[in-house]
């Protein structure tokens, strides 16, 4: 069974009297254990697709099914619980709390999962080591570079051990080297943790690192291509 299913999704936004159709009958299935990249120009609806598949937004029509759950059937509380237990997010802005050091940023959501302090901290340390920040645990955001901050954000999502990991333009604020590290990390998470990684980006550098690339325009999928095994395995 695919991890994420979009069935004939429609979504439009109304600004004043102007109605913009963002998604038009979009259907797609996304598999676990892969890094799937949705690419396209800004305004093509890719972030809206991610928001709907992650349960942050409700579609006007159609169904979004995540891990076999029809998200429209869940109450707001159930949706919170679903996201808490199954999903991780990485956003374009890193959105780290200025007051917390790297270890605390990552351990914070784990506390809400019900883990005790020692377990949360151990798991947070493992996640930070996995993204190569084992020697940066005690630093606050102000003391970290942009790339390091984004890796802390990834570790924060990863430490929850989610089955679904959503990333929205994770590299757009980063230079080439840091962008490379971030995309490699996301790819590795899909492979080693068997997670479903759905990444939305207009950054052409990422295409080469994705297992599957969905090209979007005007609310529709234009092309669905799989990378060569050799190319995807690189990284």
């Amino acid at each position: 069974m695919p991890a994420l299913v979009a069935e004939s999704l429609d979504k439009s936004f109304v600004t004043g009297t102007v109605r913009t159709d963002v998604l038009r009958g979009l259907s797609i299935e996304i598999e676990a254990g892969e890094l799937t990249l949705v690419s396209g120009p800004s305004g093509c609806g890719k972030s809206t697709l991610l928001a709907i598949l992650s349960g942050l937004l409700k579609p006007d029509a159609g169904r979004a099914i995540a891990l076999g759950e029809d998200l429209a059937r869940l109450s707001p509380i159930e949706l919170e619980r679903f996201r808490l237990h199954h999903t991780g997010f990485v956003f374009q802005g890193f959105n780290l709390f200025p007051a917390l050091d790297a270890l605390e940023q990552v351990a914070l959501p784990l506390g809400y999962l019900g883990l005790d302090d020692a377990t949360a901290r151990a798991r947070a340390r493992r996640a930070l080591e996995e993204v190569g920040l084992g020697n940066r645990l005690a630093l606050r955001p102000a003391e970290l570079s942009g790339g390091e901050k984004q890796r802390v954000a990834i570790a924060r999502a990863l430490a929850k051990e989610p089955q679904l990991l959503f990333a929205d333009e994770p590299t757009s604020a980063l230079d080439a080297a840091n962008g490379q590290i971030v995309i490699d990390t996301l790819h590795r998470i899909a492979k080693t943790h068997g997670a479903t990684v759905l990444c939305v980006s207009h950054d052409p550098r990422l295409v080469a690192h994705a297992d599957r690339v969905l090209a979007m325009e005007d609310g529709r999928i234009l092309a669905d291509s799989r990378a060569e095994p050799a190319a995807a395995g690189r990284g």
Partner: peptide, 18 residues
């Protein structure tokens, strides 16, 4: 001032009540 951080926590499933 911290609204984006709070929103991120909420995205990660931390309840509004928390």
């Amino acid at each position: 001032g911290s609204i984006r951080e709070y929103a991120t926590l909420h995205a990660l499933g931390v309840a509004f009540g928390d």
